[in-house]
Design a protein around this nucleic acid. Sequence first.
DNA 1: TATTTCAAATAGGAAATAACTATCGAAAAT
DNA 2: ATTTTCGATAGTTATTTCCTATTTGAAATA
Lengths: 294, 294
Amino acid sequence: MDIHQLRIFASVYRNRSFSKASEQLYISQPTISEHIKNLEKSLGCTLFDRLGRKIEPTSEADLIFPKALQLVEDLERINDLVLKSSQRVKGKLFIGASTIPGNYMLPVLAAKFRNKYPEVSFEIVIADTKIITDMLLNHEFFLGIVGASMEPRILNYEPFLDDELVFAGAPEFMENLTKSSVQIYQIPFLLREEGSGTRKTMEDFLHKMQIDLKKMNVVAILGSTDAIKQAIKVGLGTSILSRRAIAEELENGSLMEMKLSETMKRSFYLATHKKRTLPAQYKAFHDFLVAGSI
Amino acid sequence: MDIHQLRIFASVYRNRSFSKASEQLYISQPTISEHIKNLEKSLGCTLFDRLGRKIEPTSEADLIFPKALQLVEDLERINDLVLKSSQRVKGKLFIGASTIPGNYMLPVLAAKFRNKYPEVSFEIVIADTKIITDMLLNHEFFLGIVGASMEPRILNYEPFLDDELVFAGAPEFMENLTKSSVQIYQIPFLLREEGSGTRKTMEDFLHKMQIDLKKMNVVAILGSTDAIKQAIKVGLGTSILSRRAIAEELENGSLMEMKLSETMKRSFYLATHKKRTLPAQYKAFHDFLVAGSI
DNA sequence: TATTTCAAATAGGAAATAACTATCGAAAAT
DNA sequence: ATTTTCGATAGTTATTTCCTATTTGAAATA
């Protein structure tokens, strides 16, 4: 049994004629005859009594006609379903992001996106660039936002909003620092753990400035930006961290920035698997982020 | 788009594998590949992301899977539908019958049949054998009960219960008749109209008895058995009519039969169109009537 | 890193199916 | 009686489906 047979059956039933159906479907009349014959054979019953010039549907034909019609229409609707859904932006966005984007960039962007497409919701998993990258490789996310391009052959990377690292400390601390010109290696310094993107960027910057990290006065290594932030606030030392992470504190004066001769730019990337097809809502969010980054 | 593609798609989706699906459906793996490719082409979207050793359904696949499944199952259920319905005896029986069977035979038989199959209902149209025959030829009935085989090449005729015609009149009338042996051509006689089966049978009988109808004392030609019956009762004359039609009157003495040397048998026939397929309830009733006539 | 293994894609060809044209035959209309 | 209409049949051709054999590419393993 085949849907094509049902399509033909429905046309014959409606037209009460094999030849009318053949005109309607642009198929020759003998082909119609054959299909009806096969359908009758597979159902084990006669569908149309051939009465010379006329045909008359049997009660079995009356019975299956509505079902056949529904099947034919449902089949056609599958196409619409795909078309519609691919235009409709809704559903959950499960996104992996490294610390800075996840904490300080995505929330704002997600809110904006939701204004445009109220039917979406977000779940943002925050982890190392390394971990997010691995999860992308394992197809646990469609979309990641990471601080470094680690697998450019497998993943697609597109530039995202930049971040800037600033050298900051508690206000009283920083004022002292500017008055008495202290050696860089004497300043108490707080570090992120290895593997953190912020740490990596900072290292690169220090390297470029020809400062040796090993000689620095590292008073603590902490596992998150927030921990660093709290430590600085209570006067434990200074650190280099994302402007976005301490924007508020810089504003209200609870933290103070020390301008350096060079700015520490850090890029983030939208990462997707080269072989995965993005569902509509991911595609839309991806495009939204790319457009916003220009 | 084809249901076969959906069947294959569903299997691939469930198995999360082209080759597992190929085992399940006893189709080679390349064929599975090709069908999925074609389905993707016709839908205009990717259904499975090929990730080397694994495949992953896209959101479009998630979307259409339940629909596909339902379509495949619905299609299979059409077969069941036909099977079930052909065993189930129910629905309306629209039957054409000539006067005697329609008035005096079918009501009893219909009641018996309904005892056996309570889901049936009857609509019995009573008309001339000629009219019922024409309606059968025009496919206005599946089943007719008529008094003569008029179109044996187009309709199937099967013997049904016989009827007997009796010569009857009002009691006082008949008693006179027996006392004073009157000439047959002097008896006041009531006739049915031409075209009536009763009339035809009677004519044949008279012909066999070598009685000339034209010489008879015809006092009225009436259009129905009941009219004849009423006319006889009020003493207008005598007539020849169905024993079944006047069984009650003969019983209670309001009419009286005069036994003749020969009985006038009349056959009835179940008539069906040779080219029509009988719906289940008609088939069942037909078989019921044939069995009862033996 | 190289090798093996696994799963899907591709190529090429055979079989099955669906389609066509031409024609027949039966019933209905003229 | 003749023509017209409509479905069935016969005989081919085109298309589709499906197969086997092989290749490709990614993941697992040595």
